[in-house]
Computed example of a mutant assay.
Amino acid sequence: MKLSVLDQSVISSGSTAYTALKNTAALAQITEQLGYERFWVAEHHNANGIAGTSPEVLISHIAAKTKHIKVGSGGVLLPQYSPYKVAENFKVLEALYPNRIDLGIGRSPGGSPETRLALTDGLRKSLNEFPRQVQDLQKYIIGNDKGKNAVTAYPVHESLPEIWMLGVSHRGARLAAELGIAFTFGHFIAPLNGKRAMDYYYKHFQPSVYPNKPKANICIFVICAETTEKAEFLATSLDLWLLALGKGEANAEIISPDQASRKVLSQEDKKAIKENRRRMVIGTKELIREELSRLSKLYGTDEFMVLTNVYDFEDKVRSYKLLAEIDF
């Protein structure tokens, strides 16, 4: 089993964006030493509790502070941007850090309608253009040595950033399969859609320049601790954070487990938390091993991209260390 990391640079209550970003870079160094396969950073906008708004900038910083772990985006919100400029950004990164850059892309609109218009400078772009944008991105990344393209994305380098499609449904899996792109399924967003999406991807994959065979991983919330009680206690912060995000609350900072345990919850809140727990695996090493092994068979993949949003950085590091110790 290969393990990877997705980090959203979430700001803990009472802390700062500086600390969140510093912790993200430190986590990359730690997980590299632990043997993790890749380290991706997210892109979020207009959310005061999430410092990760520019994956390209953060990727460069992290790659400079690490030696061999693959570093990438999870993911660039392509509908808001020019595929040409995205290709340029990541080809520069690949030239700086050869064979280490992953270009994860997603179809998400990036937030509220107002946020999306701010990203597109007021241009109302259709999400239906996403398949065409992905094809254009492929064209610019791969290049064409026969001079058929009127515009080339530079710099040209012997290695290429690897494109990954991030999806939470059958639709994303279908596009990734048709275009021959590696695929990440967001179990941490939509756990009920995964089996159908992954089955379709493997069955209908069309080889491209890279990869020439299906390549996929699963992104999931994981909190691992020495005891079930400790893991559950840490998870209360994630429960309340997801609840706040789901309600569209302005403050998206992650609160401490002590604060979370004192919150008065409505029946609707408790129902939402129960539903959200489907997006997570929480417990000891034994439970995590059992559940990830089950999901590995269900999804047909040998790589999990782990997202651990807890209040205290040391608890986060401990969770990743315990996870790395598991014999799958």
Rank of each mutant, 00 (worst) to 15 (best):
K2D: 15
Q8Y: 10
K22I: 08
A25G: 14
T31A: 04
E32Y: 13
Q33K: 15
G35L: 05
A42F: 03
A47P: 00
G49H: 14
G52V: 04
A63P: 07
H68K: 13
K85H: 08
A95D: 09
L96A: 09
L119D: 02
S126C: 00
L127M: 07
L127Y: 03
N128M: 01
D136R: 07
I142Q: 14
G143L: 00
K146G: 03
G147A: 03
N149S: 09
V151F: 12
L160Y: 15
S169G: 05
G172F: 04
A176W: 08
L179C: 00
A182N: 05
N193K: 09
G194F: 07
K203L: 00
P211H: 10
A216M: 10
A216S: 09
F221Q: 08
K230H: 15
A231H: 10
E232A: 05
F233Q: 11
W241R: 15
A252L: 13
I254C: 14
R262V: 01
I273K: 11
G283E: 13
T284A: 14
T284E: 10
E286L: 14
E291C: 07
L295A: 08
T301D: 10
E314P: 06
K316M: 13
V317S: 13
S319Q: 12
S319M: 12
L323D: 12
